[in-house]
Amino acid sequence: MNRNYVEEIADRIDESETPFDENRFKTLTKVGSALTTWSLSNSEYAIAFQLAQVGSHVKATLDDGGKSGKGFDAWVDGVPSEFKETKPGPNAVHDNMRKSNGKGAVRTYIRMPDDYSAKTAMASLDDYLRTRSSDFQEYHIWAAGDPTGWSISGTIGGGYKCKGHGC
């Protein structure tokens, strides 16, 4: 990627309303958080960058809009959204969908490792949808960085579609 292209994408990510807070940074880094100098962690910024690459506008927030006492991560094209990046495991999608509850998000984005299969993701998602309820409405799950990879999009209470290799 050339520098102008990267800057153009980064311009679609706005962290201006959540400026660097030295005390918050010191507190969170003591417990091992991977913070950037603004509000998004490194993994959250990676998700924001991928969304910006496809034309979305991402605005980070510290908005405390959720029941859990924690707010959602960002507005994506005006929609309150939660970002999750996960490690592989048979219940990874289920666990991250559960962790997205109570934050005031309407949509959750879950970025999976490249080697995570679409079939494993769908099995974990099916388990979640069968056994849990959600206060968010939409979800998008995909394999990180794999250009021939897969993605799953759907709504709570509705169906989902899997696109790409392995669906």
Rank of each mutant, 00 (worst) to 15 (best):
I141L: 10
N91F: 08
G65V: 05
N2P: 06
T155N: 11
P90N: 09
N23A: 13
S124N: 04
V79E: 11
D14H: 06
K67P: 01
V58G: 11
S124H: 07
I9S: 06
I141S: 00
Y45L: 12
H94A: 11
V76S: 02
Y128M: 02
Y5M: 05
K119Q: 12
Y128C: 01
A121M: 11
L62G: 06
A143I: 05
W75C: 05
I152P: 01
G78E: 10
P90K: 14
V58F: 13
A92I: 07
A34P: 03
P90W: 14
G157E: 02
T18W: 03
W38I: 00
K87P: 00
V54I: 13
A121S: 07
G89T: 10
A60Y: 00
G164I: 02
N2G: 09
M122R: 10
V6F: 10
M122F: 01
L125F: 06
A92D: 03
Q50S: 14
N96S: 12
D11W: 14
E7Y: 14
P88D: 10
S68W: 06
D73R: 04
D95C: 02
F20W: 14
L28H: 08
A34M: 13
A10V: 14
E82H: 02
S68I: 01
S134H: 09
S151A: 02
K67W: 13
L129N: 01
R3S: 14
T148S: 13
G89N: 09
D127S: 14
A144W: 15
P19G: 10
S134N: 10
A144L: 08
V6I: 15
G154Q: 01
I110R: 02
G102P: 11
A48N: 01
V6K: 13
D95G: 02
I9G: 07
K84H: 07
H140E: 09
V93N: 01
Q137Y: 02
D63N: 08
H57Q: 08
A10E: 09
E138K: 01
Q50A: 15
G66M: 08
S16M: 06
S56W: 03
V76T: 05
D77Q: 05
A143D: 03
N101T: 04
K161W: 07
E15G: 13
L125S: 01
K103L: 04
Y116I: 10
G104F: 00
W75E: 10
V76G: 03
S153H: 01
S56K: 11
F72Q: 10
T148M: 13
A92C: 11
Y139D: 06
K67E: 15
E7H: 15
E15C: 15
I47S: 04
G159F: 04
K99Q: 12
S134D: 08
A144C: 11
S133R: 09
D11T: 14
K163M: 05
T61S: 09
R111Q: 15
L51S: 06
P88M: 10
